[in-house]
C-alpha cells in the first residue's frame, strides 16, 4: 500500500473505517473561499500586470479606452521608478532597525518574566502585552499626537531637564518614529510567544547548572536562549515578513507631516498608484513583484527553520 516509513500506524488503522466523502465536505468552504478570494485575485492581478490602457482617437466616450497587452512594460516602468526603489530601500532599513530592537526587547522581557527574584511579573506581562489589543491605526494616532510638539506631553518634561524636543518628522527621524510604533505594538506579542516556549523548557535543566554555581545570566545565555532558538527563528521570520508590509502606521501618520509622502513605503506606493493615479495596471505589476519577493523571502526563511518548526507535533 503506502510506504510504511512515511505513515504512522494510527493513520493506517483509520483509513480502513474512515469515510471518503466527509473530509471533502469539511474542506469545501475553505477551498471555495481560497479559490474565490485568493487564487482568483492573484491570477487577476497577474493578468492585469501585463495589460495597459490604450486611448484611441481623442480619448472621449466609453469605447475610447481599450485594454491591450502590454508585455513587461509595466514591470519595467516600476522597476526603473526612482520613487519605488527608494521606498524599497527605506522599507529594508526600517525592517533592519525594527526587527532586532523588537525581538531583542521581547526576548529580554521574556527572560525577565521567567527569571527568579524579579517582582511585578504579572503586572508587567499584562502591561507589555496590552498594545496587542490596540489596532495599529489607533496606535499610530496616539503616537502621532505624542510626536506633535503642540499636543505632545514630552516638551514640558524635556524643558525641565533643559532640553528641547527634536523634530520627530524630519526625513531620517521619521523612519525611527514609525519604527517606534512597530516596536511598541509588536514587542508584547512576541514576548508572550517566547515566554511560553521558555515555560516549556524542563526546569531540571536549570537545576544542575545552578548547583554548579552558574549565575542567572549564564543560565539565560547558555541554556534558555539556545533552548528557545526555534521560537526565536520563527518570530524573526514572521516579523521580517510583517515589517516589509508596513502600511497602516505611515499611512496614518501621513496627514500629520509632509515628510511621509504617498509613496513612502512600497505598499503605500501600490495604493497610491491604484487609487490616486488610477493606474491599476502599474499597481498590479508592483503588487506581483512585491508578492514574489515576499514569497521567496518567506519560503527560504521558513526552509531554514522548517525541520524544527513543522515536525514533531
Amino acid at each position: 500500500m503506502t510506504n510504511p516509513s512515511r505513515v504512522r500506524p494510527a493513520w493506517g488503522a483509520r483509513t480502513r473505517t474512515a469515510p471518503r466523502l466527509a473530509p471533502y465536505v469539511c474542506v469545501t468552504p475553505a477551498v471555495v473561499l481560497f479559490v474565490l478570494f485568493l487564487l482568483l485575485p492573484i491570477g487577476y492581478a497577474l493578468f492585469m500586470s501585463f495589460q495597459k490602457s490604450q486611448v484611441s482617437g481623442l480619448g472621449l466616450g466609453a469605447g475610447a479606452r481599450r485594454q491591450v497587452f502590454a508585455g513587461l512594460s509595466n514591470y519595467a516602468t516600476e522597476l526603473t521608478d526612482a520613487a519605488f526603489t527608494s521606498s524599497l530601500l527605506r522599507v529594508v532599513i526600517y525592517s533592519v532597525i525594527l526587527v532586532p530592537v523588537m525581538l531583542g526587547l521581547a526576548l529580554l522581557f521574556a527572560l525577565l518574566l521567567d527569571a527568579r527574584r524579579v517582582r511585578l511579573q504579572r503586572f508587567s506581562r499584562l502591561a507589555i502585552f496590552l498594545p496587542y489589543a490596540v489596532p495599529t491605526v489607533i496606535a499610530s494616532l496616539l503616537w502621532g499626537f505624542m510626536y506633535l510638539p503642540t499636543v505632545s506631553p514630552f516638551p514640558p518634561v524635556l524643558a525641565r531637564l533643559g532640553l528641547t524636543m527634536p523634530n520627530l518628522f524630519t526625513t531620517h527621524v521619521a523612519l525611527l518614529s514609525v519604527a517606534n510604533i512597530g516596536v511598541w505594538g509588536g514587542t508584547g506579542f512576541n514576548m508572550i510567544v517566547l515566554y511560553t516556549s521558555l515555560r516549556s523548557v524542563p526546569a531540571e535543566l536549570y537545576e544542575a547548572a545552578r548547583i554548579d554555581g552558574a549565575s542567572q545570566t549564564q543560565i539565560a545565555l547558555r541554556i534558555k536562549i539556545p533552548m528557545i532558538a526555534p521560537a526565536l527563528v520563527l518570530t524573526g521570520v514572521f516579523s521580517v515578513i510583517a515589517t516589509l508590509q508596513v502600511f497602516n502606521e505611515p499611512q496614518t501618520l501621513a496627514p500629520l507631516t509632509n515628510t511621509i509622502s504617498p509613496d513612502w513605503m512600497p505598499l503605500m506606493r501600490v495604493y497610491d498608484l491604484a487609487f490616486n493615479d488610477n493606474d491599476v495596471y502599474g499597481a498590479a505589476a508592483l503588487s506581483m513583484m512585491i508578492a514574489v519577493v515576499m514569497f521567496i523571502l518567506s519560503y527560504s526563511l521558513l526552509r531554514v527553520s522548517n525541520r524544527r518548526v513543522f515536525q514533531g507535533r
Partner: peptide
C-alpha cells in the same frame, strides 16, 4: 496563503 501580503490581494479583490 499566509505569506501573500494582504495589500497584494486587496487591489485585485477590489477590482473583482
Amino acid at each position: 496563503g499566509v505569506m501573500v501580503p494582504p495589500v497584494v490581494l486587496a487591489l485585485p479583490q477590489y477590482l473583482l
